[in-house]
C-alpha cells in the first residue's frame, strides 16, 4: 500500500504551484492517501499488451490554414483581463 507522507504532500503542492497553508497539509495528506489507495485497485487488472487510450474521437491531425483570426478581439481587451496592467502591458513582480 502506498503511504503518502507530509513530504509527499509538499512535493505535490510544489509540482502544482500551490502554496498551501500549514493547516491544510494534514487534512490534504489524509484525503490524498485515501484517494490514491482507491485508485490503486487498478493493479488488479492485467494491462500487458494493451494500448492506452488518450482520446476517443478517432480524429487525427485536424489542420487549419495558418491564418490569424482575431475573432473581433482586440489586444487591449485581452491584456485588459490581467489583474495589473501598465502601459498596455501585464505587470508582474521582478523576475531577475
Amino acid at each position: 500500500m502506498t503511504h503518502i507522507s507530509t513530504d509527499d504532500v509538499q512535493r505535490m503542492a510544489h509540482l502544482s504551484n500551490l502554496k498551501l497553508d500549514a493547516d491544510e497539509i494534514e487534512p490534504m495528506r489524509v484525503d490524498l492517501q485515501n484517494i490514491i489507495e482507491y485508485i490503486g485497485q487498478l493493479d488488479e487488472l492485467d494491462t500487458d499488451n494493451v494500448e492506452p487510450t488518450y482520446q476517443v474521437t478517432d480524429l487525427q491531425n485536424v489542420w487549419r490554414d495558418d491564418v490569424v483570426n482575431t475573432y473581433d478581439l482586440t489586444t487591449d481587451a485581452l491584456v485588459g483581463l490581467a489583474p495589473e496592467i501598465e502601459n498596455a502591458q501585464i505587470k508582474v513582480p521582478k523576475v531577475l
Binding site: M12, A13, L15, S16, L18, E24, M28, L32, I36
Partner: peptide
C-alpha cells in the same frame, strides 16, 4: 479544497 485535491492527484499520477 476539491480543486487542490484534484490538481495534486493529477501532479502525482503524472510525476
Amino acid at each position: 479544497p476539491e480543486n487542490k485535491r484534484r490538481i495534486m492527484i493529477g501532479s502525482y499520477v503524472l510525476s
